[in-house]
Design a protein around this nucleic acid. Structure first.
Length: 164
DNA sequence: GTTCCGATGCTT
DNA sequence: AGCATCGGAACG
């Protein structure tokens, strides 16, 4: 049995459904994304840029195609006491040892779960990261983070991610 | 300090 | 072809 690893979620992004052009659900249910269209409380883990695993929680009702990306966690148990270990969505899965074998898990029943925790002192919002292709949807303030928390990911400015 | 770039493989 | 990223190199 593995030792328990846990973090406090300090940063997320919301993806609303097929109408949200920044969401993987925008093409409707596919082999990869059909889990997003199932009931909430289930994991959606996928590989990004061929390297990083991303951990999402499906949050909608059946057919809605809604999910939340977990972008950062603060170490809580079984992790080094260093805010950088969970800072960024790729770091979250590395810290928790999650990969695509954890896709489509029922988070209400298995070893992988989300539990109630502390309420942030203040929640800030802003545009989601890395979705500049999504037209007007890219500017929507669907990224949420615990304001001033050290484990929140650094987002590069728009000017540094411009096309070359 | 800022900006750029390669790694790496799945998806449409 | 493009990507819901990251770490390190290059530059100032």
């Amino acid at each position: 049995m593995h030792r328990k690893r846990a973090g406090i979620i300090v940063e997320t992004e919301a993806y609303l459904g097929p109408e949200d052009l920044a969401s993987h659900a925008r093409f409707g249910p596919t082999a990869r994304t059909s889990v997003m269209f199932g009931p909430g409380g289930v994991s959606y883990v996928y590989l990004c840029y061929g390297i990083h695993q991303m951990f999402n929680v499906v949050t909608g009702t059946e057919g809605q195609g809604q999910a939340v990306l977990i972008r950062a966690i603060a170490p809580y148990a079984g992790l080094p006491d260093d805010p950088s270990v969970g800072r960024g969505p790729g770091k979250v899965t590395t810290a928790l040892a999650l990969d695509r074998s954890h896709d489509r898990r029922d988070l209400a029943r298995g070893a992988l779960y989300v539990a109630p925790a502390q309420t942030p002192d203040a929640i800030a919002t802003g545009p989601r990261v890395g979705v500049d292709y999504a037209g007007e949807w890219s500017a929507r303030p669907y990224r949420f983070w615990w304001r001033d928390h050290p484990a929140v990911s650094a987002v590069r400015s728009v000017s540094t991610r411009r096309k070359r």
